[in-house]
Simulated assay, not measured.
Amino acid sequence: MFTSLSLTTAGIAGIAATANAAPETGTAAHTAHAAYSMPGMPGMPASTQASGDDPDGDGYIMANPPVTGVTPSMDVPPQAYFHEFQAKCAPTHTAPDDPIVYPGQPGKSHDHTFMGNTTTNANTTAASLETGNTTCLAPGDKSAYWMPSLFKGDQKILPDGVQTIYYKAGVTDYRSVRPFPKGLRFVVGSPMQSKEEFKNLKGTVEGWECGDSFKNYDFPASCPDRRDVQLNLRLQAPSCWDGIHLDTPDHKSHMAYPVAGGANYNSCPADHPVALPMIEFKMAWPVNGDMSQVRLASGAGYSFHYDFMNAWDTATLDAMVTHCIKGGLQCDPHGYDENHPDKGAVLDGNYRLP
Rank of each mutant, 00 (worst) to 15 (best):
V76K: 15
Y351E: 10
F85G: 00
H334T: 08
T8L: 07
C89D: 06
A32H: 10
P66I: 11
G43S: 14
A34M: 13
D342P: 07
P106L: 08
G207T: 03
G183A: 13
A144D: 05
L296S: 02
P220D: 06
G43Q: 07
P277G: 08
T134E: 07
P99C: 12
A90E: 04
Y102P: 05
Y306D: 10
E338C: 01
Y306G: 06
P103Y: 00
H254Y: 08
I279N: 02
M255Y: 10
N216V: 06
S303P: 00
S213Q: 11
I61N: 02
P103G: 07
K195F: 00
V346S: 04
T248H: 07
M1K: 00
D56S: 14
T125R: 09
L137D: 02
T18F: 07
V76N: 15
Y166D: 14
L246S: 02
A13W: 00
G328I: 03
T131Y: 14
G170Q: 05
K108E: 06
V177C: 07
G189P: 03
S4L: 10
F2N: 05
L296W: 03
H251S: 03
N123P: 11
S73W: 12
L347P: 02
S253Q: 06
P45K: 01
F85H: 01
S190W: 01
A13S: 14
V274C: 04
C268S: 06
Y306V: 12
T172D: 13
L246I: 10
P42N: 05
A28Q: 13
L231T: 07
G107T: 03
H83W: 08
P148N: 09
T314V: 13
A138T: 13
M1F: 12
T120L: 08
P224I: 09
G328S: 01
N232G: 07
T134A: 11
V76E: 15
W146K: 09
D160P: 00
V274Y: 02
